[in-house]
Write a protein that binds this DNA or RNA. Sequence first.
RNA 1: GGCGCUAUCGUCUAGGGGUCAGGACAGCGGGUUUUCAAUCCGUUAACCGGGGUUCGAAUCCCCGUAGCGCUACCA
Length: 480
Amino acid sequence: MENLRVRIAPSPTGFVHIGNFRTILYNFLFAKKNGADFVLRIEDTDQKRFVEGALENLLATLEWAGITWDEGPIKQSGRLEIYKKYAEQLVKDGHAYYCFCEPKRLEEMRKEQQAQKLPPIYDQYCLRNITPEEVNKKLKENCPYTIRLKMPKDETIEFEDIIRGKIKFETNLVDDQVLLKSDGFPTYHLAVVVDDHEMNITHVIRGEEWLSSVPKHLLLYRYLGWEPPQFAHVPLLLNSDRSKLSKRQGDVAVEDYIKKGYLKEAIINFVAFLGWNPGEGSTKEIFSLEELIKEFKLERVHKGGAVFDIKKLDWLNSEWIKKISPDNFRERALPFIKEKEFYKNLPDNQETAIFINKLLGLEQQRIYKLSEIGDGVNFFFHDIEYDKELLRWKGMTDEEIKKSLEKSQELLSDIKPQNWSLPNLGHILMEAAGDKRGELLWPLRVALTGEQKSPSPFEVAWVLGKDKTIALINKAINLV
RNA sequence: GGCGCUAUCGUCUAGGGGUCAGGACAGCGGGUUUUCAAUCCGUUAACCGGGGUUCGAAUCCCCGUAGCGCUACCA
C-alpha cells in the first residue's frame, strides 16, 4: 500500500476556531487510524491578516489536545520562490497569464456583471489586449502584476469526493483565479496545490468552504502534470439558527472553551461527533481519543452541517469530569479554584489544603464545567446569617428545633476525629434519624449552610470538619 | 443573481425499498436523595413539499422549497 500522507493547513489569523479544530481532529484521526504521516503546514500567505501570536496559540492548542504531527510546521512564507517558479512555468506553457488590471477596474467590472446578472468573472482583458511585447515592457518597468490561471472553455470538471461523491463544475462559470499576487505571495489556490504535491499529500481533508474551488485546483494539477490527491470536504459547524458558526452568537475559539473549564476529552469527544459517528447501531457516546482513532472512518463523515449545541457539550463535560480520577480532577480544577475570590482570602496552610481537597471531592460529582467550581457552596466562605424560620421543618416548634439540633450536636460530638468520614457521618445521622429524617436533617442543613439548597448535611459536615461543625450547631442553638 | 452542497424529533444522530422510524442531549412527569445536583424509571417529539418508479418509498429518480457555502490580488 502506498504511503498515506495528510496535512493540516491553518492560517495564523487569530485564535483556533472550533470548526478548524474539528477539521484538524478529523485529519489526525484519519492519520492515526490509517498509519498516515501527518504534516503541519502554516498558510501564511496573507500578510494583511497575519496576527501576532496566532501560530504560538495554534501550537499550544494542539499540544493541549494531544494532537501530534510528524513534519512541520512548514511556513509557506518561506517558499515564495517556489510558487513564483511554478506560476511562471504556467505562463510559459500557456495556462496562465500576466494581469496588470488595477483593483479599481476589477471592482467596477464585477459591479457591472452583477447588475447584468452575469457570473462575476474576470473578463480576460489582459489576456486579449496585451501583446507579449507589451507584457515584457511592463515587467521591465516594474509595473505591479498578478498571474492568473487561464480557465479552459466549455469543459466539465468532474471529481469524486470521499464524503460527497461525484461533483461537477462547468469551467465557463469559474473565474480566472489569481495565482500570484502583486506582492509576490501566492494565493491559497497556487500554494495549496504546489505544497500538497511537493509534500506528497495523498488525502486532502478540509472544510466544505473549499468545495467550489476544487476545479481550479484540479486544473492546476493537470497543467503542472501532477497526480491530484483524494479530496474529502467536511461539513461546517453551525450556529443555532443554522448559519455558519460565528463569534456573534457565542464562543468559537477553542481557547474560550478551555477557559470556561471544558475538558479536552469532552471537547474532542463532542466535536468529533458533530458530523460523524461510528454507526453500525452503536449507541455509545463517550469516546476517548484512542477510541475515536480506532473507530474513525472518513466515509462516515456527514454531508450536512451540524449545529453546535452547548447543552450537549455541558453534559459530555460533566460525564468526563466524573470519569477522570480524583487526582486528575484536582490537578485540573486547582487553577480554576485559585481564580475564585474566596480562595484569595484563605490562609495558606495545611488546613486550607485539606479543606480544598474535600471540597474538590464534593464538586467533582456536581459541576458541569471547571469554572463553576465552588459556586454552589458559597456558605463555606462567609459567616452564616441565620434565618430562624428556615430552620423550621414542617411546623416544628422552637422547642423541637432546639432538641433536634442538640441531638445532632450530641451525635457528632461523639464521633472521634479519625472517624470523621463521609460514609460514617451519613451512617450515624441516618441511623439516628430513623423515619423522621426531615426533623433531624433539615435543621442541621440550615445550621451548617444557612441555605435551603446545598450538598447534603453529611457532606457539608465532612468538609467543614468536626470543630467548625459543632461550633455552627451551637450558634444555631443559641439563636432559637 | 450564478454555481455548488445539503435536508430524519428543538439539537446531535441510527436506519437506507416492508422497522411500533431506534438512541443521546434538552424538555416534561415520577421514584430515590427530605433540598439542589447526581442517579434511576417513564414520557412528549421527526423522515421539507409535490410528482414519479414500485405490490410497497423516509429510503431510488425528477421537480420545487429552504438552509448553507463559494462567487477577493482572504484563507
